[in-house]
Design a protein around this nucleic acid. Structure first.
Length: 277
DNA sequence: AAGTAAGGCAACCGCGGAATG
DNA sequence: GCATTCCGCGGTTGCCTTACT
């Protein structure tokens, strides 16, 4: 490691703390277009006043399309407990067995729920162990063969090339939306679009299941929309809005720690239509 | 209703190891 | 073989929300 280590970035010149919607969009848009070959230079190239590490963390833990959000199921919790017995605090290893879950998330769940639960359940362990061993073994095998019905992006939290390609395919449909958002923001309507990366996993499943997402290799390069795809895109946006409850209920969009502005009801589709016509 | 404590989670920090020149 | 850079990981912190008094 040599003598001392240069800081990864000039902390006086980078922004810290919670990410804004605008920053998220910049990061998403940049990674979609160019990938993340070099986290260190990414923020500069993407126009972000952030440390590369911070970008990486934000992407991996929050913005990646295959991040599964929401509560852990009982099965997932049991899996974590079991894997923790095997791997200890190797959160990344554990995360690799839980599709859509990040090491950070698992770590948090462990410290906030499972550890306590385990200690309080110590008395029951003898019974539970016998019961769970069988079911966990089954689950492990089933997880490996079909990771998760609602998340088909693959399980590793590390961004393999394959995952990236799949992710890129997913983003094809978001690209115009994102770029248009930039335009909209420039006209002082930053709240107009909500990029739904905290979608219900079923939404991603919907994306993933769409044949129209199958692209030839090198799908990183921006793609012009095919005429025949427009209908599907429109359907997608409608589905998206319905999934998000944007049509009637704006109040559900408060999950993000920045307290994002709610999307206007038809903004996604309207924006897209404006863009393509 | 207000104040305080606890819980939950996103983000930061620093280290180790792999990759590179 | 060594120095350096970069990435990924695990530990930790601190803010925000919720529950409790």
């Amino acid at each position: 490691m040599g003598k001392g280590r240069a800081p990864c970035c000039d902390k006086t010149k980078v922004k810290r703390g919670p990410w804004s919607q605008d920053e998220d969009l910049k990061l998403i848009s940049f990674i979609h277009k160019y990938g993340h070959e070099n986290w260190r230079s990414l923020p500069k190239q993407a126009g972000l006043l952030r440390c590369g590490k911070s970008c990486r963390l934000r992407w991996i833990n929050y913005l990646r399309p295959d991040v599964k959000r929401g509560n852990f199921s009982a099965e997932e919790e049991e899996t974590i407990i079991k894997l923790h017995q095997s791997f200890g605090n190797k959160w990344s290893k554990i995360a690799s067995k839980l599709p859509g879950r990040t090491d950070n998330e698992i770590k948090n769940v462990w410290h906030t729920h499972l550890k306590k639960r385990l200690s309080s359940d110590t008395n029951h362990n003898a019974n539970d162990e016998a019961a769970t061993k069988g079911s966990l073994n089954e689950e492990e095998t089933s997880q490996e063969s079909s990771p998760n019905a609602s998340m088909s992006f693959g399980g590793s939290n590390t961004s393999s090339k394959e995952d990236d390609v799949q992710m890129a395919q997913t983003f094809e449909y978001f690209q115009d939306c994102i770029e248009f958002t930039g335009i909209l923001q420039e006209v002082d309507k930053p709240e107009l679009l909500e990029i739904p990366f905290d979608l219900d996993p079923d939404v991603w499943s919907f994306i993933d299941g769409s044949d129209s997402f199958q692209q030839p290799e090198n799908s990183w390069s921006p793609r012009a929309h095919q005429e025949s795809e427009e209908d599907e895109v429109e359907k997608w946006f409608k589905h998206l809005e319905s999934e998000l409850g944007l049509e009637e209920n704006d109040s559900q969009q408060q999950q993000h720690n920045e307290g994002k502005e709610p999307s206007s009801s038809s903004s996604l589709l309207e924006s897209y239509e404006l863009l393509i016509h």
